[in-house]
Design a protein around this nucleic acid. Structure first.
Lengths: 242, 242
DNA sequence: ACCGTAGCGGATGTCCCATGTCCCCCGAAC
DNA sequence: GTTCGGGGGACATGGGACATCCGCTACGGT
């Protein structure tokens, strides 16, 4: 009936079996040479093919959906999906917020990871940056400055600035990862941040980063990025130190 | 029937509702001030508290488990978990393998991300490294060399080497992330790798990295790491170019 | 002939229930 | 005091029923 890959003697841990089922589904996608965008078999067909019940199957399917492996469209079908890190961000944000209730260790580590990523990569990004890309970065800075002058927050321009900074690496996966940490940072920021932000100062920090990049001074660019994060680390310490 | 926080007019996408449920569960953990290791309410209690059926709840729960937010122990209960990136690695490995069927773009990007992480962080790690930690790194290299001489593969020593290299940063989260990319790299490596590995050469590469670190030469350390990855990028190109 | 809409079929979403499995706890026996 | 085994609670799995949604098609009006 089934390929014999089902339920050894159930002697394995339940957790391992669920992971095995996820692997089986991914293996099936690879075996059938499905490409992103292609439809998967229906739930019932998968139940039969994998020899598990619909509930069990759906639990694995949902996990794969959260991991961005598949996309599920209600009433239509399931498809191999392009990358999607949304769920990862949510999980990390949760961990950061959870840690803020204690000593904020993980929150600081999350910020440190973003810091390490950006400071470590800025040099390579500068090597590859074209004049157009540099101009795009400055455009984001200008939008920040305009917003700051008008007293408006500039979340969007901030995200764009950092994205454009690393676009020259032309690594979509890396940009997604940086985007995740940007989002995590942003969330932790609003959690521990002060009621009012010093918008002009924040815009100035980005202006400094830009000018270091424009000058081709990698060491200074990394240093300016460090400033960008250092103040925030301090604030976390204060927030949990109370 | 249910508390009324359910299904506005069901006008929302199904995907969004599932994500909202996950958020609700995480909010509930934060509200009740549960710490890692604490037990969550039972499934039935959560069903009542959140106003959803058990299956729907379980699908969200499994996602949170995969994200490392909670830990489910069969027959005992559910608990707030320490970080766990296992599922993330599986998802990334899948994407890499999937891309190898075509042009290997994502596989190369995955390797590039690991490269960028390690090369970008090695400098900071060297700043913080103590003599004991340096000795531990060399110990891993020696184990590699011994294994290579005996003609045995050294997967474990390899993982340990890279982990010890970045332990000085004392950022558990970052080490987990690097561990994920190590695992992804390893998997892609065995997928496209040659039947036989040049073990002595591989050990020598690590020896070179170590000596650059021991000498305190950051630029050379980053360069040696680049060598470590460059050959592999080439092999991916060959594997998909055939 | 064209277009808008109502209806149909199929697939996923949600839920409940029954049964299997596992784990911790505690009491009894040694 | 230690060990073994039963009990009870909690999760795991499977199946079925019904709700909901989506894309397609066929009908009817213009």
């Amino acid at each position: 009936m089934q390929p014999s890959n089902v339920v050894p003697p159930a002697r394995f841990g339940a957790q391992a079996r669920l992971r095995a089922l996820q692997s089986d589904i991914m293996e099936l996608i690879l075996d059938r040479e499905l490409e992103p965008g292609d439809a998967l078999p229906t739930e019932n067909e998968l139940c039969l093919a994998l020899g598990v019940g619909r509930n069990t199957l759906r639990e694995s399917l949902k996990v794969l959906q959260a991991l961005g492996v598949i996309e599920i469209r209600h009433g239509f079908g399931m498809f191999v999906a392009p990358s999607n890190f949304e769920a990862l961000a949510d999980g990390l944000i949760f961990r950061g917020r959870l840690s803020l209730r204690h000593h904020g260790l993980e929150a600081r580590q999350l910020v440190d990871v973003r810091h390490a990523l950006e400071a470590g990569l800025i040099g390579s990004a500068m090597d590859e940056m074209t004049a157009e890309q540099l101009a795009a970065v400055e455009e984001s800075v200008i939008r920040m400055e305009e917003s700051a002058e008008a007293g408006e927050a500039f979340v969007e321009a901030d995200a764009e600035f950092h994205r454009r900074l690393f676009e020259p690496l032309s690594n979509e996966l890396l940009l997604n990862l940086l985007g995740v940490f940007w989002k995590v940072y942003r969330k932790i920021y609003t959690e521990v941040g002060p009621g009012v932000e010093d918008l002009p100062a924040l815009a100035a920090v980005h202006r400094n980063i830009y000018s270091a990049v424009a000058a081709g001074d990698k060491a200074r660019a990394a240093r300016e990025l460090t400033h960008h994060f250092e103040g925030f680390r301090q604030r976390i310490r204060e927030a949990v130190g109370e």
